[in-house]
Amino acid sequence: MKFPAPLVRLWHRLGSPRWFFETTAPWLPWLLGLGVALLGAGAFWGLALAPADYLQGNSFRIIYVHVPSAILAQSCYMLMGSCGVVLLVWRMKLADMVLEAAAPIGASFTALALATGAVWGKPTWGTWWAWDARVTSMLILLFLYLGIMGLRQALQRPEAAGRACAILAIVGLVNIPIIKYSVDWWLTLHQPSTFKLTEKPAMPPSMWIPLLLSVLGFYALFIWSVLQSTRVVVLERERRTQWVQNFVAAEGSKA
C-alpha cells in the first residue's frame, strides 16, 4: 500500500516534538473560545430552556454534564490506547508524551462522570451507588487511569515507563466495549444511550440539541487541555535541546 506524500510528510513531522510545539500554538485560543461558547450555550439551554423530563423532573438536567464527561472519559482512553500502539510499533516519542499528558485529564473526566452519576442516582434510582454493570465498568476505567499514572511514577527509566504504560493502556482497551455494551448485555439500572449512530434520538430536539452542544464543547476543551499539557511535557523532556533553552530564555526575560 502506498500513502500519499503529504500524509507521509505529516507522519514524519509528528515524530518531532518541536514541530508539534510550534504548530499547535495558534490552535489553542480558538479551541478554548469554541469550547467555552459551545459548553456555555449547551449548559444554559439545558438548564433554563429545555423542558423538564416527564418522569425525572428537573434532575434530568444533570445529563448535560454527566453524558459529556462519560463520553470524554472513554474517548480519552481510546486516544491513550492508540498512542500506546503508535509508541510500541513506531517508537514515536510524541505518542508517549501525549500518553503522559492525557492520563490525569481522562482520570478527572472519569471521576466526574462517576460523581455526577452518583448525584443523579440519588433522586432517580433512590441510591448514590449501585454495583450496576455500567457503573462498575466505569470504576474499572478510573482504576486503569490511576494505574497508568502510578506506573509512570513508579518506574525510573523513562523509556521503560513509557513502554509499560503503553502496554497497560492497550490491554485496558478491552474495557471500552464492555462499558459501551454493559447496558445491553446485562440487566442494568442504567438507561441506554441517548445518541445512537443509526437511529434518531428518543428525546425531542429541545432536549438533545443542548446535549450535542455540550458534548462538542467538552471535546473542544478536552483537546485544548491535552494539547496544552502535552506542550509542557515536550518542554520538560526536551529541556536539553537548544530550542527549548532558547524558549525558556525568551520566557524568562518576559517575566
Partner: peptide
C-alpha cells in the same frame, strides 16, 4: 429546580471545578 436544586447545581458546580 422543582426540589432537585441541590443535585442539579451540585453536579454543575463539580463540573466547573473539574474543567
Amino acid at each position: 429546580m422543582g426540589g432537585h436544586g441541590p443535585y442539579v447545581w451540585g453536579c454543575y458546580g463539580l463540573t466547573l471545578l473539574v474543567l
